[in-house]
Amino acid sequence: MTATASRRVLPGFGLTLGFTILYLSLVVLIPLSAVFLKTATLSPEQIWNQISAPRAVASYRLTFGASLLAAMVNAVFGLILAWILVRYSFPGKKLVDALIDLPFALPTAVAGIALAAIYAKNGWIGQFLEPLGIRIAFTPAGILVALIFIGLPFVVRTVQPVLQDLDAEFEEAAASLGATRWQSVTRVVLPAILPALTTGFALAFARAVGEYGSVIFIAGNMPLVSEITPLIIITKLEQYDYAGATAIAAVMLLISFALLLVINLLQAWSARRGRREA
């Protein structure tokens, strides 16, 4: 009952909330609003011409397609990694656990040039793929590789704690009721971690959609083929086409906000599920 009590007896509410809102407005909200205000100065026709130009449309398809694919790969391998980190013991596990966060900590430009050096046609792996006729760097496949790299920790780090908290008793109950190991994993464990897995997938996808640094070094950046949407914004800016850059940015922002909403809903689902199974 007292948990919801007004806690205003602690001093500093006005000061901290005031500063928080001021700083948030100055640094984030007002500058972000510039995108929409600038877009609003264009006529609907101008906006439509900008955002429906063939190059832009090709970039959406590439950006979202590659992001979706990367998030799916991450969902599978992220789940496997979370599984082995929680369920198995093996030498070097602590190190693996610590290094999972590398893509969070490694600057994207560094990841970008490293991946390019690996998959270029004379690169560490590229040289073996070249004779097979497989090219990764400077093709959409390269973009996929970069997006897999940056998205991996999202899935592992959302699934891992849920898997960790999942009591072994659920599987024991399933086994005692006659379920095979496969049945108890697919019918008991997977449903329990599904919200977390979906959340991790959505986070990895959202991050991939906006990614720039790690991609441009390996993408080749060919218009209509391997040019991602953030790069189009930069190109337009460099040509002083502020209106064009802003219109496309507005589209991306709206999509980001929609994703943010979806992720918030997923996390609420995840939290609810966690409580029920606790």
Partner: peptide
Amino acid sequence: SVSPVIAGL
């Protein structure tokens, strides 16, 4: 959730 490019823009 904002692309870094837009953060600069």
